[in-house]
Amino acid sequence: MNYGLYIGIFVAFVILISSFVTVKQGTIAVVTVFGKYRRLLRPGLSLKIPLIEAIHSRISIQNRSVELSFQAVTQDQANVYFKAMLLYSVLDQQEETIKNVAFKFVDATNLMQALIRTIEGSIRAYVATQRQANVLSQRHEIVEHVKHQIDPVLESWGYHLQDLQLNDITFDEEIMRSMSKVVASHNLKAAAENEGQALLITKTKAAEADGNAIKIAATAEREAAQLRGQGIALFREEVAKGMTQAALEMESAKLDISVILFTMWTESIKQFAENSEGNVIFLDGSTEGMNKTMREMMAMQIDKLKNGN
């Protein structure tokens, strides 16, 4: 009798204990009665009917991630290797959504297999319409295409695609080498163009500087020539004034004006002799030649005096 009481007390204790259920934070428990959905249990301590209600599954509402690694073929028959990271979660915490998640697939393994294969198929279908040269620059377009194609399917399963990151996109080794050569050739071309532009700018600036220097030198030379011409003109003017004054004085003194010309002739010969610096100057020193020169100089002087008067 005592053993039966102890057994009864033990069974009652076990039943009482089994009526308490603890649900962790970030998890929702799905309760069934004889295999049929009954209700949900939220995080915390809850009660259930012992031996009648059972915990069918515990659904995590936290974000979950999975890594993908697969191959696709482009339109021009190039193999592309993808490594991606998928982030997904339960769509929301509403009862219908949780029921869908709990009973849509047999278990989590089947869900994961369907999810991975669906995403891989969507990416392969997109890559098959693109050429190999365009794939690397279309990461964003690929992700947007997958989200657009996958979101309706996942929502029908009770899930939502949070993010898809294509961490690595590679090709066959031969294609990678050819792509590296193309990039290197483009870089060399760009470097040559930049060097040519720099050289053109340098040459242009140097030519502009030379042109400006020539202009400045020409301007300075023109101004110097003008000053030299003005100086010579002033010198000649003063000489003419002096000679005119001397001629007038000699004429008033009734002296022969040819004396001035003879003096200029002798002074010129003297200057030639003193400052010739090794040069040879031939002068006609004969009486006839001297008379001819004197007559020409006197004629020139007479013309100047007439023009001056």
Rank of each mutant, 00 (worst) to 15 (best):
Met179Lys: 15
Glu67His: 02
Ile201Asn: 10
Glu267Arg: 02
Ser65Glu: 15
Val73Asn: 08
Val33Tyr: 00
Gly121Phe: 00
Met298Ile: 09
His148Ser: 12
Ile17Met: 08
Leu166Tyr: 04
Gly308Lys: 14
Thr219Ser: 03
Lys306Ser: 10
Asp256Tyr: 07
Ala220Ser: 05
Asn307Thr: 15
Glu267Trp: 02
Ile17Glu: 10
Ile7Arg: 11
Lys189Ile: 03
Val183Ala: 08
Met294Asn: 08
Thr129Gly: 03
Ile61Glu: 06
Glu173Thr: 11
Leu164Ser: 05
Asp303Ser: 06
Val31Tyr: 01
Leu255Arg: 12
His186Met: 09
Leu200Pro: 07
Gln138Ala: 07
Ala246Lys: 01
Thr27Tyr: 07
Asn110Arg: 05
Ser60Glu: 12
Val66Glu: 14
His160Thr: 10
Thr202Gly: 02
Ser258Lys: 04
Tyr159Val: 08
Met1Ser: 10
Ser89Arg: 13
Thr170Met: 01
Asn212Ile: 07
Ile7Lys: 13
Ala224Arg: 15
Val23Met: 03
Ser65Gln: 15
Leu115Asp: 09
Met243Thr: 14
Ala133Pro: 08
Arg38Asn: 14
Ser156His: 11
Phe235Tyr: 12
Ala233Asp: 10
Ala198Trp: 07
Phe82Cys: 10
Arg124Thr: 11
Glu267Phe: 01
Gln62Lys: 11
His56Thr: 04
Asp210Met: 09
Ile257Asn: 08
Ala225Ile: 14
Val101Ser: 01
Thr293Tyr: 01
Gln226Val: 09
Pro152Ser: 03
Gly289Arg: 02
Glu53His: 01
Ile17His: 06
Val11Met: 13
Met112Gln: 11
Phe82Met: 14
Thr32Asp: 14
Asn187Gly: 08
Val66Thr: 14
Ser18Arg: 07
Gln94Trp: 04
Leu199His: 14
Leu234Arg: 04
Ser258Ala: 03
Leu87Gln: 14
Ser276Ile: 05
Glu144Tyr: 08
Lys48Met: 09
Tyr126Thr: 05
Lys254Val: 07
Arg139Trp: 07
Leu199Phe: 11
Met250Val: 06
Ile169Pro: 03
Leu68Arg: 07
Ala128Asn: 08
Gly231Arg: 13
Gln197Trp: 13
Met243Val: 15
Met243Lys: 12
His140Ser: 12
Asn167Pro: 00
Gly26His: 01
Ala240Tyr: 10
Arg228Ile: 02
Ile9Lys: 08
Ala225Trp: 11
Ala54Pro: 03
Glu144Phe: 06
Ala246Gly: 00
Ile142Met: 09
Pro50Ile: 06
Ala220Gly: 02
Thr287Val: 04
Val30Leu: 04
Met298Asn: 05
Phe34Ser: 13
Gly289Ser: 00
Asn79Glu: 12
